[in-house]
């Protein structure tokens, strides 16, 4: 479903479903190109409301404490922008196009992610 949605978007409109990229475009208030990220994010939120209603999803439990959570948010935002992509952009659309950059980026964040989980587990 994720792959299908990303494929449809690229086939019809020529755009890549990279969430971090779309969010960053939202933060550059330059011209009317901002309409694309606004529509995309409205769609994400609408889809999730529908999902919330039909799937009866519980509020996700976040056990990370506040300080680490804020730090994590900063790192995710900074890293995804600096590295030109996140799980959706590099992990699905990038690797799917056989991009060497995306394969390298995905391997890198999977490794540091797993290493972080491992280290956190040592302290809890």
């Amino acid at each position: 479903m994720i792959g299908f949605s990303a494929l449809l978007l690229l086939a019809y409109s020529g755009r890549i479903s990279g969430i971090s990229g779309i969010v960053s475009q939202l933060l550059i208030f330059r011209d009317r190109r901002i309409l694309f990220p606004i529509v995309y994010i409205s769609g994400l939120l609408s889809g999730s409301v529908i999902g919330l209603y039909y799937l009866q999803l519980p509020t996700p439990k976040i056990e990370t404490d506040w300080l680490l959570l804020i730090l994590a948010g900063l790192l995710v935002g900074f890293g995804a922008h600096l590295g030109s992509g996140c799980t959706s952009g590099h992990g699905v659309c990038g690797i799917g196009r056989f991009s060497v950059r995306s394969i390298a980026a995905t391997c890198t964040f999977l490794c540091t992610g797993a290493a972080t989980v491992f280290i956190v587990a040592l302290f809890t």
Binding site: L44, L75, S88, T116
Partner: peptide, 26 residues
């Protein structure tokens, strides 16, 4: 920037278990 950014992103992802898409959906 690509590799450094990806590495930093991974650390944040591993700390909270959230990446940009799911965070916005949530």
């Amino acid at each position: 920037p690509l590799l450094l950014g990806a590495a930093i992103f991974g650390i944040g992802w591993g700390l909270a278990g959230l990446c940009p898409g799911p965070a916005i959906v949530n």
